[in-house]
Amino acid sequence: MNQPLAYVHPGAKIAKNVVIEPFSTIHNNVEIGEGSWIGSNVTIMEGARIGKNCTIFPGAVISAVPQDLKFGGEESFAIIGDNTTIRECVTINRGTIASGQTVVGSNCLIMAYAHIAHDCVVGDHVIMANGVALAGHVTVGNYAVIGGLAAVHQFISIGDHSMISGGSLVRKDVPPFTKAANEPLSYVGINSIGLRRRGFSTEKIREIQDVYRILYQKNYNNSQAIDIIEAELEATPERDEIITFIKNSSRGVMKGYTSSLSKD
C-alpha cells in the first residue's frame, strides 16, 4: 500500500498487500481483505467490510449512510464478498436498523453507475449492468443478471439464475431461472442459455420448463398451478425452489406472456 496521496484512517484495517491509489479516502471502521485494489478517487466510509481480491474503480462510494429519512445514525455495515468488481461511480449504501447491513456477494460484477440501496442482499456471481438501481430491501439471487438501466422497486425479490432485460421497471418478484422483459415486466421464457453455460443438463432445463409451462401458460392462478405442480411433477431441488419462491413472495410474482412474440 504505502500511498502518501491517499488518506487511510488509522482505525481502518487494511491487509498488507492491498493497493490504494492516489486521492482515495478510507474512513474509520473499514476492513479491506488481501489482494484488493482500490482505484483513485474512491471513498470507502464507516462500516465497509470488503473481501479479498476485490477491484473497486475510480469514483465509487462504498458504505455511505442510507438515503432513508428513517435512518437514525445507528451502526450498520456494507459487506462485499471476495473477488467482486465494482466499476466506476457505483454507490453502495450501508444498512439501517431493519437488517443492519447491505450485502454484495462474491464473484460479482457491478458495472458503472449502478446503485445498491440500504438493506439489499445481492448473491454470488451476480452481474448488474450499467446504471441499474436497486431500491432498499431488494434481494437478488445467485447468478442473476440485471440489464442496464433497470430500476428495481423496494422489497423486490429476484430469483437465482434469472435474467432481467435492460431498461426494465421491476415492480413484482422475478422467479428463479426465468427471463423477464416487456412493460409491464413479464415472463418471456426460462434463462436456458444461462443455465446451459452454468452446467445445467438438457433434462434439468426441460424439468424447469415444465414447471413454468404450468405456472404461466395454462391459465391457472398461482395456487392452482402450485397444486398441480406438486401433484404431477417429480420433486427436485429446482421445482421446490420455484414453489418456495412463489409461496414466499410478498409483492406477488410477475405475470405471464404479454407478447405473442415472446419465446422460451
Rank of each mutant, 00 (worst) to 15 (best):
V152N: 00
I116Y: 12
I110W: 00
P22S: 14
M254F: 09
H153M: 10
G166F: 03
G256Q: 11
A112V: 14
F57K: 10
S192K: 14
I79V: 14
D173Q: 05
K13Y: 04
I56V: 03
M45T: 08
C54F: 12
P66R: 03
T91Q: 08
G100S: 12
S260H: 09
L109F: 11
G136C: 11
R87M: 09
V18C: 09
E234H: 09
G59H: 10
P184C: 04
T244Y: 06
V170N: 03
A112N: 09
T55L: 11
I190S: 02
K204Y: 00
F57S: 06
S186N: 09
G252D: 10
F177T: 01
G105Q: 01
S76P: 07
P237T: 02
T258Y: 07
A133E: 10
K13S: 06
V122A: 07
T258W: 05
Y143F: 15
V152M: 01
K263F: 04
K16R: 07
T102A: 07
F200D: 01
S223D: 15
I50G: 05
I214F: 07
G148A: 14
P22G: 13
P66V: 02
D82P: 08
E88K: 15
H118R: 12
I32S: 09
H137E: 13
V103S: 01
A112S: 13
L69C: 02
A6L: 14
I243C: 13
T178A: 06
E238N: 11
T236A: 11
V211D: 00
K13V: 03
G166A: 13
I97N: 08
F245N: 09
A112F: 01
K172I: 02
G100T: 05
T244V: 06
G33W: 09
V145K: 00
G73L: 09
N53M: 03
R198T: 02
P176V: 03
A15W: 08
T55P: 00
A60F: 03
Q101H: 10
V90F: 04
S63P: 04
A225W: 04
G123H: 07
Q3R: 08
F71I: 01
I56G: 03
V42G: 06
F57W: 15
L69G: 00
V65D: 15
G72P: 00
E207P: 00
S76W: 12
Y220G: 06
T178C: 15
S262H: 13
G159K: 07
P237W: 07
N17P: 07
I62P: 03
S262P: 01
I20V: 13
T55W: 12
E74P: 02
F245R: 08
D160A: 13
L195P: 00
M128Y: 04
I38H: 08
N130I: 10
V61A: 13
R94W: 10
Y7L: 13
K218A: 14
F71M: 02
T139H: 14
P184T: 01
P58F: 07
N29L: 10
G35Y: 11
I229P: 11
K13R: 12
V132G: 02
C54E: 10
K70N: 01
I246L: 15
R171E: 11
G167I: 06
T96P: 14
G166R: 04
L69H: 04
I110R: 00
M1E: 07
S63W: 01
G95I: 05
V211P: 01
R251Y: 11
